[in-house]
Amino acid sequence: MKLLSYIQEGVTRVGVHTEAGILDVEHALTASGYLKGTSSVTLQNVIAGGLEMLSHLNGLAGQAVSGTVPESDAVVLLDESTLQLAPCVPRPGKIICVGLNYRKHAEETNAPILQTPILFSKFNNALAAHLEPVPLPAASQTVDYEAELVIVMGRTARNVSREEAYKYVYGYCCGNDLSARDLQMRTQQWLLGKTCDKFAPVGPYLVTADEVGDPNQLAISCTVNGELRQSSNTADMIFKCDEIISYISQHFTLEPGDMIMTGTPEGVMLGYPPEQQVYLQAGDTVTVEIEKLGRLTNTMTI
């Protein structure tokens, strides 16, 4: 299932992407009698509902597409092109990032192949939606793109083994770990260059794990103004998704809705010779595409 978040009259709502349009989750659950009372439905509610909720939503989406339920406001499919999208996970508790996690990316930046993951974080101010403009910070002249696979947790995970790790995953999405390289390298801590406003676009969809299969075998790419800059496969990751989840959970607890950005492949501007480096400028459009997850596009602004 492909879930998305969108904003309607100032409220962030949850939708299910279908071939015929977007199903409003709250309306559909209310109409079916599954949802009692007047509480609004958030993505966190949907994640907490687990497999039972997914199964019910799958059935409702199928009925809406096939027209086998009475037509009403609750089952009308919305035109995705008319919606103002929100980040597919609007309010994660944590955004955890893994650095230098692709072999060829480590090689292009002359970094050693890591023996343990490098972890850093972004804050929620960095979140941006598909098609949302990203302002380039005035303090930086070297903003770089980084196409990344993002893991979204579905269950509380603490001291989880690699063998059990995928049981705790809800789904995956496309991400762009935008990085202000001059700010990032100013000190040994990367945070300043990583969590500028809108520096973590994610989406457009949160695709549930059952639709993705093996996350370590997905084609991943990035284009800037239509020019291919990154083209790789998550198979090149040094630390696979199950290993990342297990490693993090040994040190702090992962909660439902937490996001893990798993690193970027080769082709970032930082890896070019200095005389060939042309960093992102206002008007540049960056598209991240990952197999089975869709395309995430953002345009840089001032």
Rank of each mutant, 00 (worst) to 15 (best):
T38P: 06
T299M: 14
E227C: 04
E146S: 00
V288M: 00
T142Y: 00
P273N: 12
N216A: 10
A64M: 05
F123D: 04
M269G: 00
V288E: 01
V150D: 00
H27V: 00
L100M: 13
S246R: 11
I302H: 15
K194I: 05
Q277F: 04
G21Q: 09
R295H: 05
L178I: 01
P201E: 10
G37D: 15
Q84E: 15
I151W: 14
E227P: 03
E80D: 09
L270A: 13
E211V: 06
K240P: 05
N124V: 14
F123C: 07
T297P: 13
L54H: 07
S40H: 13
L191E: 13
A165N: 10
V207G: 03
L54M: 13
V25A: 06
P265V: 08
T38A: 14
G50T: 09
L43E: 09
Q141R: 11
K104M: 12
P265E: 09
P70I: 08
A64H: 07
C88P: 01
V98D: 00
A20M: 08
Y6F: 15
I260W: 03
L131C: 12
L192A: 10
L78M: 12
L293S: 07
L254F: 01
C241G: 02
G203I: 02
Q217P: 02
S72Y: 07
K240M: 09
N124P: 11
G175H: 00
N110L: 11
K122T: 07
L60N: 06
F120L: 03
Q63C: 10
S121F: 10
Q189E: 11
C196F: 10
A61L: 04
D236E: 15
